[in-house]
Design a binder for these strands. Structure first.
Ligand SMILES: [Mn+2]
Ligand SMILES: [Mn+2]
Ligand SMILES: [Zn+2]
Ligand SMILES: [Zn+2]
Lengths: 139, 139
DNA sequence: TTCATTATTGCAACTTTTCGCAATAGCAAA
DNA sequence: TTTGCTATTGCGAAAAGTTGCAATAATGAA
């Protein structure tokens, strides 16, 4: 497990909510993949560890943890994926032909975000974007 | 109806597929909203016009039309929405507090797209993005 | 530690979306 | 026009995800 339990308890409480066994187990399950994982994969792993946890709870928890920004989520190849949120945002370039996924640092969005702030008085929350297209090999 | 039937027949055939009554009716249904519409809304309208069309066909058709870029789709407030594709891409700023939706012209992405092309040799296909965040009133 | 409040869970039913497969129909070629 | 190929559809069933509600348990206050 690469995350520190104590931080998550605090961040959940700070957000005005309660830490529960179920939420801890879902966090651990997501973390254990060390990659983007689908709801189905996470649900399966949760049930391996704690079969009594209801599926509705797992779905609700994934949405909840994403809303309070403890998880990142995104749509890749038509599938919703989740991962533990990184300290800073990060993004991906996804080839729709070969499926290759590359990382794109947050820095690339700095100018766009600044422009949206100043010209549109809108505060964008861009923490995990998946950009589809064609990689060098597939163009 | 604001679209020209003949164009769609041609574009579907050019993409190596067949135009069918079902696809025409789904296109008409999506068009009739003149706004972002959910799958449920589109399915309902299709059934008002042609009750015999199967729901699986409508879902399959929405995916298909999106894949060949005749429709735009996106996730707004957790819901997948569809609309007739505009000649040029367009994007949205969506306030997560009040739900207000503003338009964002494609021009804003020009620099980002250029950077991704030159620095990452990746050809991004950004035709309809929904950026969530906070509008001026809600910050 | 005990209690009171109420957020969260489990449950079961429900809605939404997907799937495999046989029947149908688009369309290119004869 | 007719024919043949096969992409597309309808169907029924399954899978995936959501919901309302009563029971449970996390938290702060006593
Ligand atoms: Mn990621
Ligand atoms: Mn739009
Ligand atoms: Zn590729
Ligand atoms: Zn707002």
């Amino acid at each position: 497990m690469s995350h520190h339990t104590i931080d998550y308890i605090q961040r959940i409480r700070d957000s005005g909510h309660r830490m529960t066994h179920q939420r801890q187990i879902v966090l651990d399950a997501v973390c254990s993949f060390n990659r983007h994982a689908t709801a189905a994969e996470i649900l399966k792993r949760v049930h391996e560890i704690a079969p009594a946890i209801n599926q509705a709870t797992v779905y609700r928890t994934l949405n909840f943890l994403t809303e309070i920004h403890l998880l990142f989520s995104g749509t890749i190849d038509g599938q919703t994926i989740y991962e533990i949120a990184t300290p800073t945002p990060h993004h991906h370039l996804i080839c729709r032909k070969c499926g290759h996924i590359a990382a794109l640092p947050d820095q690339c969005f700095a100018d766009l975000i600044q422009q949206i702030k100043t010209e549109y008085q809108f505060l964008p929350e861009i923490d995990h974007w998946a950009i589809t297209g064609l990689c060098a090999d597939c163009q």
